[in-house]
Each structure stands twice: as C-alpha cells, then as structure tokens.
Design a protein around this nucleic acid. Structure first.
Length: 946
DNA sequence: GATCTCACG
DNA sequence: GACGTACGTGAGATCC
C-alpha cells in the first residue's frame, strides 16, 4: 500500500477507483490559445500575456473540474523542448515550413512554464523529442499500471493514441474525443490513423505522404487493404492509373512519413506516474504569480474557490482590443418619440378631398396601401393611408367587406367607391410637385399601376436606410424601433396568425385605421430621420442616382411580368415524373429495398450502412453527407446507385421547383409570371428575386435549359437578352489595377487562357482545355477571396497543389495580393468595405474571435467590392435604359435582371435596334480603365435569346 | 423551424 | 499550430 501515499485524496477515498492521469499538451495549447484569444498585454509594462492568461484559465478550469469530478488522480503538463527532434534526422524538412513563432508569443513560453509551477503542476519536456512522444510514452506506462489516460489536447496527431482507457479532451470546447470522433476525422479506427496520415501527409508539419492522396482516399485504401505495408505491397492492384503509379513511386516516402507521424512511446523518461499525483495548490505561490501577471479576474476566482478571503468586488479586466462599431460618427439622432396621434377614417369624398388638398399644399405625403396579399400582382386593394404631418394620418378603406363572420352581417362597411377614390387620388399621386414617401414604395407603385396610376416622384424610407445605414434589416418595424423608439402595432394583432389569419379586407374599420394610418405616420416620421441621415452618410449621390430611381424601374418590371407557356411546363412535368418513377424503381432495385429517395437521411443509411460504401460522416448532427459531390465521387468509383440518385435529384429539383411551381405562379389575369425583386435585401447591393425567384432559372444543364424555353415572348415580339461578359474580372482588373489583365481586356484576349499562360507558363496558342479550365477556376476563386481548400475542392486536386497555383497566381499578379490585403485590412479597421460608388458592405463578424468566422468575413470583404460594384453598374444601366429606349422611339420593355443580364420583350421589327441600344447603354454604365463588353441575343424564348 | 440540397450569378 | 472554407442569393423537401 506504499503507493497509496502518493495518491490524491479522491483516489484514497475509494480504493476501487482507477487512477486517472491527465496529460496536458502544453505546447499545443499555447499556440491554440494564442490564436484563439484576443491579444492582451500587462498593464504595468505592456508585456504580452494573452497566451499565458488563456493557459492559466485553462489550467484553473481543469483543476476545478478535476476536483469536482473526483476521479482525476494525476496531472502533468508536457512541452516541446526545442525545434530539432529525432524526426529531423529522418527527414530534414520535417516541420521546415513552420514560421517562427510570433514575436509577442516568444516571451510567453517561459511564463507559461512558470505558471505550471504556480499551479503546483509538473512541467515536463525532453531534448530531441516532441511533447507528443512524451505523451505517448507516459500514456503507455500509465495504461500498463492500470490508469485511465486523458490527453488534454485536440491535436489530430495525438488521435493515434486513443483506445481502451485513453481519450482526448479538447480544453477549449470541453469535448471528449474518442474512437467515434477519430473515425469521423480519419475514416479509420485510431490504430490505423498512422497509416492514413502516412499516405495523406500533412502540410502543416511538412509530412510528404503520397501525392494525390488525401485523408479520404487514404482511409478508403487502408479500409480496403488493412494497413500501409499491405497496401504498398499490393499497390499494383490499384485500378486508378495515376494513384497506382504514385503509390509505387512514393512507397518509400510513405514509409518515411510513417516514421514521422508515428509517435514514439519509448522515450527514456525518468518520471514515474507517482511524480504526477495531484498535489495541494500552494495558494501563496499561486496568488503571488497571478498578482505578478496582473490577472485580477482569475485571482479573484482562485481566492473565492479556495475560500481564502471574502472575494472583494473586482473590476473585470477588459480583454483584447476595443473594437469600434465601424461607422465613425453616430448617424442617428434619436427622433422625438411618437407622442400624440390623430388618425382619421375617411369614408366620404369631402373628407378625402380635404386630405388631398392638405397633402398637395404640404408638397409631401406618406402613402401606404393595405391589401390582401404580399404579392402585389395577386393582391386586391383594401385601402390607402396618407400622412401629412407627424401624428396626423388617415385611412381610406376601399375594398373592405364586412368584418367578422360574413353570415352574420353581409353588408360591407361604409366606404367611398374604389374607382371614385382612386380617380381623386390619381392627380395627387402623379403630381410632380408632391413627393410621395413610402416604406418599400415599389409595392404600392405596382398596386397603383394596376389602377392606371404612375406614382411620381417618390422617396423610400427602406431604400434610404439601406443606402445610408446598411448592416441591418430595413423593415418598418425594425426601423421604427431603431429610429423612433416605437413598436408599431403588429400585423398579427390585427389579422391574427396561422390558420386563423384573416385578410385585411375583413378587418373592422377602426382597427384597420389604427394599423394603416400608423404605417403612413411612421413612414413620414422615418423620412424626417432618414433624409438627414443620408446627408450625413455622404451617400446622397448613390441614393439619388441609383436606388431611388431604380424603384420605379423595378416596379414597371414587376408589373410587366414575363410570359410563360404553361403547356410546355406541363409536358416537362409529365416527362420528368415518368423518368423519376423509372429511376426510383431502379434505385430501389439496386438498394434491395423501398425507401424515400428524396430523404438524404434514408439515402445515407442505404449507401453507407447497408451497402457500406466508403465515405464519411459529417456535420454535428451525425448525418451522412449525400451532397452531389459525394454521390459524384461514388459514381466515378463505379457505383450505379449514386449516379441514378443524381439523375433523380436533378429531375426532382427541376419538377418541384420549376415546372410544377412555375405553372402555379402564372397570374390568372395577365397570363404572366410576376416576380418580386428585393432592393434592400443583400449585403453587396445586388437585387434578389422571389415569389418566384426568376434569378435562378436553370441554364447549366441540357434538361434545365428546357425550362428556359418555356419563357416566351408575346406574339409579334421577341425576347432580347444582354449580359455583361466577365464583368467581375474586369472590375478586379480596374480596382486592383493589374496591368496584364487590363491590357488583355483592351486587346480582347481570352482572359482565362491568359491566366493559364501566366500561372502555368504555357503558350496561349493551342492550349489544353483542361489547363484553361483550371485557370478559370482560379480566376473565379480570386473573386471569392480564394483559399487553397476551396480551390482544391473545386478542381478536385490536393490542397498543396491548389496552394502552388495560388502562389503562382500572386507571383504573376502581385497587385491582386495587394488588393486582397488592403481589403482585409480595411474591413478589420472600419468594419465595412465599399463599392466604386461608395456603397458600404458591412462585415459584422470581421473582428470575431472565432477564426473561421473571421476568415469568412475576410473572404467576403474581398468579394463584396467586386460583386457590389458589378451590382451598381447594372443598376446604373437599368436606370439609364428606359429613357434611352423611349428617346429612341422604341417599345422594348425590361422584364428581368439576373445580376449581369437584362431581359427585354421587344416588338419583332425593333430587335436589332434594341440590341444595339441596350448594349451601348450597358457598356456606358461605368467608365472604368477597362472596356465593358456586352453580348446580346434574341429569340422566341429565353432559351433562344441566351 | 432548422437542415440539407441545389438552382442561378 | 487552429478554426472550417470558396462570394452572393431563394426555395422545396424532409425531419424534429
């Protein structure tokens, strides 16, 4: 029983309890803490202490948890000693690509070892070995003595040690990693992790592996052949020629990789398990250290936990840098609260005329319509509200039926006849001397267009907010709360919700008036706030030349709609249905059971459990990934079922989203489909389209294009489509100022071929189409804020190769790298980036402490100025086009916008002149240092025009 | 209502 | 030595 003298009290309490050893991966934690936590400096001397702080908090939490748990008996903290280890003797390049540790981390290494002493924990390191080898060695010895081993780390290189009685604990996420998690990560059990890593290599450690093989492939191969040696011996059997060659050629490299990856569990350590037994913390020493480090919060915590003295209220020490809101001066001056309101119901012509007169003499009126539907083309008008002064508004009911149960009282309430009221309102709404203010006034404009009224001039509080103060929603309720401190009556309070919801025409007039008049009133008040805000934001020109005039243009487009041939869609639906049934039968035959092909869950179970095809779980929900990429890979590996599922999915998508749904979207009165374009929805300034979305009509596949053929012109008309060619790359060339790209666009050179020749050093003449394809993917990637991972994924190449492509690209186009760095920096400093016309694209997560979120925002920061400038350009064209068309005496109607494309319906005899004019206006929409090119086509259908 | 998948630029 | 990935959208189906 002599051993027991060194055991923790907890272990002594229960002799049957197994010992449990915590092996803390100190070096791993330092780097992770350094990068995960905001920088922090010691107040007194400015010494960087962020990683120390993170480390101490982690240790403290670990000890607290261990004390609460009662099962932990031993703890040791393990560190790397120096850079060079025995692995460098095997392979000199091992970890050769590592940067030096950051300048402000270096001094913290010593402090962290000191911290271990302060917490009375042994800090272990040994020359020539990595922390991981020591951990492996201690783990093995502890297991031999019957103890459980918890490795406090999330390093994947330690996963090979997981097994019976050994698991990892991620200290930041407080999550245990056992066999299951290892299987998820590597696709094999822990004892085969080394084999997988030897094949896949590791770019961060510079472990070479075998070219062309990543974790997925490696796992599949090891699963098939058992282990690395067996695989290398039987490499000649591999079907894929490239893979076979590589496995044979790089067999030795794989074996070397194994030596690098496999952890040594025979390090000649001198410590014994007993040396790691938990000791009582020396509070004086610990508090002295915390004082020295100036960790006041942690000190208070320790004091409290140990009951040393009453914890005095401590000021919480701020951690990290203070981040600005990114907007500089506050834009919003809080408007006075909505105090007194006088809302009137207008039920006779005299009263209406009185309001019209007041509005006319005020020269400004807020207008709002109440209807039965969110889609204006489907909606029936219920009434109109007007506001002339803050707090003074009216509601003019026009289409109300009796409130409540119709059977009780079928008599409609007293209202002015709709036609009469609209006739009286028309002069006001069209009066060039009276500004009509609305919240999303485009909706009301479409409603009025149906009554033959062209509302003008207009102003829109939603668009004002979108331009002057982006980065949040611009719905009226949100704006009202934000700027007026007032919560409007919720729609649901008036009309109910869910099944019990009624249309607005059934609402009792007094309730309708309270709701509707308030909307107009709030709109007017918001106008008083947002107009000055726009001025202060210095984006008046953007609003006045783009967003504001665009509202009218879009209202006309939505009102016009586009003709769709229902019979053609019906035929497609029937065809798709038939083929889906056939495919479904084949799929179930292959699967050997009936299941719902449309259920990713069931499909995943069939593929990966029943048929046990290779492939991994993904996501936190434990669901099998069955995306097109996965199925595509399986199909390429020779499996029939996934191919058929892909075909089935394509048809299911086309049928449910397009051929079926689109038929239902055809407006009964017009025989056309009327989408709704959102003008204030996207973060970059693009439009979006919904109900239905006509910006994602299929075009990339043969089957999909059949749907475009169902979008047709009226008899005697053609559809004309005009699109910008490579507008985003042209914008990049301009704003990043890239000489070769600009020259190429001037000379009309194939831009992807140029990139291919620059990056891969091949001549443009007679270029291999696959090489050009890679270059095209790089060009797209650049616009998206390229990452090696993304490009590798897109091209199906190893990440290392993708990285070389990117490096070569930056080498040839250093200006692009400069541009990206500048945008990242800009975003970090001010929280937004801007388009060429000054539109702000806000990046709320740019300074997040979550590295993934930050990286995501950085990529968005690179993309947004490009995408947003393209959006501004086409908006300029859209605003310029209607007057240009009218001036040319043409009758073309703009119908749709699809980001870089405009679609028109044109009388047959005007096709050529319209094409020429449209192209000219679109080209002239921006004056860049590169020419803009527009391609235009015409035909009886959208498919033909494209 | 969240998640997955997929249509577009 | 670490996050989880291409940028921006909308919609239908399934599942909880």
């Amino acid at each position: 029983m002599a051993d027991n003298a060194t055991l923790s009290p907890a272990a002594q309490r229960d002799g049957a309890t197994r010992h449990r050893l915590y092996l803390v991966d100190g070096s791993g934690y330092i780097f992770r803490a350094y990068h995960a936590l905001p920088p922090l400096t010691r107040k007194s001397d400015g010494a960087p202490v962020g990683a120390v702080s993170g480390f101490c908090n982690m240790l403290n939490k670990l000890l607290e948890d261990a004390a609460a748990d009662g099962r932990v008996s031993h703890i040791a903290v393990i560190f790397d000693a120096a850079r060079a280890t025995f692995r460098n003797d095997i392979y000199p390049d091992y970890k050769a690509n590592r940067d030096e540790p950051p300048e402000d981390l270096v001094p913290q290494f010593a402090m962290i070892r000191e911290a271990c002493g302060a917490f009375s924990l042994p800090a272990i390191e040994m020359e020539g070995f990595e922390a991981d080898d020591l951990i492996a060695t201690f783990a093995k010895r502890a297991r031999a003595e019957g103890a459980d081993v918890v490795i406090v780390s999330s390093d994947k290189d330690l996963m090979q040690l997981v097994g019976d009685g050994v698991w990892l604990l991620d200290p930041l996420k407080n999550r245990e990693l056992r066999e299951k998690e290892v299987l998820e990560k590597f696709g094999v059990a822990p004892d085969r992790v080394v084999d997988v890593q030897s094949l896949a290599g590791d770019s961060t450690d510079n472990v070479p592996g075998v070219p062309g093989i990543g974790i997925k492939t490696a796992a599949q191969l090891i699963g098939e052949y058992g282990d690395l040696d067996a695989l290398l011996e039987r490499a000649a059997e591999i079907k894929q020629p490239k893979r076979r060659e590589n496995l044979i050629q790089f067999a030795e490299q794989a074996r070397i990789s194994r030596e690098l990856v496999r952890l040594r569990d025979d390090v000649p350590v001198t410590e014994r398990l007993d040396d790691f037994a938990i000791r009582r913390v020396d509070e004086t020493k610990l508090i002295g250290f915390l004082d020295e480090m100036e960790f006041r919060t942690l000190k208070a915590r320790v004091i409290k936990a140990h009951g040393l003295e009453a914890a005095q209220p401590e000021e919480v020490v701020g951690r990290g840098v203070v981040q600005g809101d990114g907007h500089g001066e506050p834009l919003s001056a809080q408007a006075p609260a909505v105090a007194k309101t006088d809302y009137r119901l207008v039920q006779d012509m005299a009263a209406l005329q009185d309001w019209i007169d007041r509005a006319t003499s005020a020269g400004r009126v807020a207008v709002d319509t109440e209807t039965t539907d969110l889609s204006p083309r489907r909606a029936r008008l219920c009434g109109v509200s007007l506001a002339v002064e803050p707090g003074e508004a009216c509601y003019i009911p026009l289409g109300h039926v009796s409130a409540g149960d119709l059977a009780d009282d079928p008599t409609p309430p007293k209202q002015i006849p709709e036609a009469e009221a609209l006739a009286a309102l028309k002069p006001l709404l069209e009066d060039p001397a009276v500004l009509k203010v609305g919240q999303n006034i485009k909706y009301d404009m479409v409603m009025f267009l149906k009554a033959g009224i062209r509302v003008a001039p207009i102003d829109d509080t939603m668009l004002l907010s979108y331009t002057a103060d982006p980065g949040h929603g611009h719905g009226m309720d949100e704006l009202s709360e934000l700027h007026l401190g007032h919560r409007p009556i919720p729609y649901a309070e008036v009309c109910g919700k869910g099944k019990a919801q009624i249309t607005f025409d059934r609402v009792a007039l007094d309730a309708a008036c309270a709701y509707a008049a308030e909307d107009a009133d709030i709109t007017l008040r918001l106008h008083h706030v947002l107009r000055p805000m726009l001025l202060r934001s210095r984006r008046v020109a953007l609003y006045e030349t783009l967003d504001r005039p665009l509202a009218t243009v879009i209202a006309d487009m939505e009102f016009a709609g586009i003709k769709v041939d229902p019979a053609a869609l019906q035929r497609l639906s029937a065809d798709f249905a038939e083929r889906m049934t056939a495919l479904e039968a084949e799929i179930q035959e292959l699967a050997g059971e009936r299941f719902n092909v449309g259920s990713p869950k069931q499909l995943g179970e069939i593929l990966f459990e029943k048929m046990s095809l290779p492939g991994g779980r993904k996501g936190k929900n434990g669901a099998w990934g069955t995306g097109a990429d996965v199925l595509e890979r399986l199909s390429a590996e020779g499996h029939d079922l996934p191919r058929r599922v892909l075909d089935w999915r394509q048809l299911a998508k086309l049928k449910s989203t397009y051929t079926d749904t689109l038929q239902a979207e055809i407006n009964a009165e017009t025989g056309r489909v009327h989408t709704s374009f959102a003008l204030a929805a996207t973060s970059t300034g693009r439009l979006s389209s919904s109900e239905p979305n006509l910006q994602n009509i299929p075009v990339r596949t043969e089957e999909g294009r059949k749907i475009r053929a169902a979008f047709v012109a009226e008899p005697g008309h053609k559809l004309v489509s005009a699109d910008y060619s490579q507008i985003e790359l042209r914008i990049l060339a301009d704003i990043a100022d890239i000489p070769q790209l600009k020259q190429a666009f001037h000379d009309g050179i194939d831009i992807h071929a140029l990139t291919a020749s620059e990056v891969f050093g091949v001549p443009i003449e007679g270029m291999d189409p696959m090489v050009r394809r890679s270059a095209k993917a790089i060009n797209f990637g650049i616009i998206y804020g390229i990452s090696a991972f993304g490009l590798a994924n897109n091209l199906g190449i190893p990440q290392g190769e993708a990285k070389r492509f990117i490096d070569a690209y930056f080498e040839r186009y250093p200006g692009v790298k400069t541009y990206m760095d500048a945008k990242r920096r800009e975003a970090h400093e001010q929280g937004f980036v801007t388009t060429l016309w000054g539109r702000r694209c806000v990046l709320p997560g740019i300074n997040s402490k979550n590295p993934a979120e930050r990286a995501f925002n950085e990529r968005a920061a690179i993309n947004a100025p490009i995408q947003g400038t393209a959006a501004d350009i086409i908006k300029r064209a859209m605003v310029a086009l209607p007057p240009a068309i009218a001036e040319a005496g043409l009758a073309a109607r703009m119908l749709l916008q699809v980001h870089d494309e405009l679609l028109f319906e044109v009388p047959e005899g005007e096709v050529d002149r319209t094409k020429t004019l449209v192209a000219k206006v679109m080209q002239g929409a921006a004056d860049l240092s590169v020419p803009l090119e527009v391609e235009a086509g015409a035909g009886d259908s959208w498919g033909q025009a494209h």
